[in-house]
Write a protein that binds this DNA or RNA. Sequence first.
DNA 1: ATGACGATTTACT
DNA 2: GTAAATCGTCATA
Length: 203
Amino acid sequence: MARLTRSFFARGAEELAAHLLGQRLVRILPGGERLAGIILETEAYLGVKDRAAHTFGGRRTTRNEAMYAAPGTAYVYFTYGMHYCMNIVCGKLDEPVAVLVRALEPVEGLEEMARLRGATARKAELAPTSLCSGPAKLCQALGIDKADNMIDMVESDALWLERGRRVPTASILRGARIGIRECGEWEKAPLRFWVKGNPHVSR
DNA sequence: ATGACGATTTACT
DNA sequence: GTAAATCGTCATA
């Protein structure tokens, strides 16, 4: 394994969002089982200036505190009363920028992922392409919740990244972020990145 | 103390 | 396509 170190995360959100594609997200469950998926879709959140970001205007609250932590920190938040989403903090310490992980191609522990997904989404189709094709889906499939907020993915033995496949620049597409509303120009900014033609991408 | 709402997912018309 | 599910967080009072 070639685990990604602090320096990998210490850069701007747009750049990290692109470079995260193809990397392997590894999760060790409390019981010890190893799950993993290849990152295929991300979104960059540009912090203070980005109207769509939780830290727009320098907002700093209990919820978004992780975004001010060291690059490589996990920012996991709860939304819609039932879902968790995971971000990887980047930039510099105290610079509240991060990248939302939106989709994975599951590659290790698929059965366990299906079990974790099925626990609440009983009727959902649990085909591989439905396991991690969305920010809340992948958190559920990997058993990620508020207990994982603020984890340092550079040092943690429960959640980290390993160097994965190389994704050719020509296979990376970008477009407007999903689920952003009433954010003016930021609504259209092409800050969503995904691997062209991959069936595991959301929507 | 209260109310509005969300970086979503799923089911249903 | 539209709507429901469901509750912690945040802004306002």
